[in-house]
Structure formats: C-alpha cells, structure tokens
C-alpha cells in the first residue's frame, strides 16, 4: 500500500502497461508457426508491438505528470450523499450497464431499456417522474417498433409478447 501511495499516476500506469506488454509479448511468442515457411509470419508484428509498448511504458515511468493529467479531484459537496458522488455514479453506471447487458436477452429489449432509462435518469437526479416515464416508454417501445417492424432488425422480445 505504501508503495502505491508513493507512485505518481504516470508511474502506476507505466507499471500496469509494463506488465501488460510482458504478457502481450509472452502470448506473441506462443503464436503457432504457419506450416509453409514464409519470410514473415503472424507473430512478427505482435512481437514488434509488444516490444514497443514495453519501451514506451519504461519511458512513461520517467515522464513527469502534467498538471492536467491527474484526474480532477471531485468537488465533494457538503452533505452530499455517498450515492451522488461522481466516483460512485461511475461505478454504479458501469455495474448497471453490465446488468443491462446480462438481462437484455432474458428480460427483453423493451423491459430492460425502459427500466434502465427510467431508473438511471432518476438516479442521476432528474425528479420529474411524469416526463421521465414518458421518455422511457417512448424510447424503449418506439425503438423496438422502429427497428423490428421498420428496419427488420431483431431485438429480443424477452418476457413480453413479441
């Protein structure tokens, strides 16, 4: 923990990239050789890229952090709830998108999209329930009809009748 606290953001990213490029190079050297001998095989370009990334990560480790680089500190407002903080909102958004993807084919497009728009708009702080409800219904049902009936694109009906 102490080590990570001493590292500048650029250095932390450099270490991650260094490890990534080592792994990338390892996989590059595992790429099977093509049966017919060729002057250049599938593994050469990835090996060059892995080597370049390795060198660049070392370069980044020694690069100074520009002032604008470091993620802006969030302006925490007084009495702000945990759920309204930007970092919490980002994590919740990513998790909810993950849930949306998992449920899309099971529960269906209309249902998941409606719940997503209504729920997330409310979560981001929009308080007008009626407008929110109308937009969520119009977008989810409207897109479903437009894409499936109008453009012939398949969208999963899920729990609702197709």
């Amino acid at each position: 923990m102490k080590l990570t606290r001493k590292l500048r953001p650029n250095q932390t990213i450099a270490i991650i990239l260094f490890l990534f490029s080592c792994f990338y190079l390892y996989v590059a050297f595992q790429i099977p050789v093509y049966a017919l001998p060729r002057p250049i095989d599938s593994d050469l370009f990835p090996q060059i890229l892995g080597g370049l990334m390795l060198l660049l990560s070392i370069g980044l480790f020694f690069e100074k952090d520009a002032e604008t680089d470091v993620a802006e500190q969030e302006k925490t407002k007084e009495h702000e709830s945990f759920w309204a903080r930007p970092n919490t909102q980002i994590v919740v958004t990513a998790l909810v998108i993950g849930a949306y993807i998992l449920l899309l084919e099971r529960a269906g497009f209309v249902l998941t999209t409606f719940v997503f728009i209504f729920g997330m708009t409310r979560y981001y702080g929009y308080k007008n329930y009626v407008t929110n409800l109308i937009v969520a219904i119009v977008v989810s049902v409207g897109f479903y009809i437009l894409l499936t009936r109008g453009l012939g694109v398949y969208l999963p009906p899920g729990l609702l009748p197709a």
């Binding site: 998108i97 999209t113 997503f116 728009i117 409310r122 979560y123 981001y124 929009y126 929110n132 977008v139």
Partner: peptide, 11 residues
Amino acid sequence: PRAMLLSLIII
C-alpha cells in the same frame, strides 16, 4: 436535462 441525456446516450 443532463440526467436524461446521459441515460439516452448509453442506450
């Protein structure tokens, strides 16, 4: 509203 915009862009 920003809140609505964000959810719509994701969708």
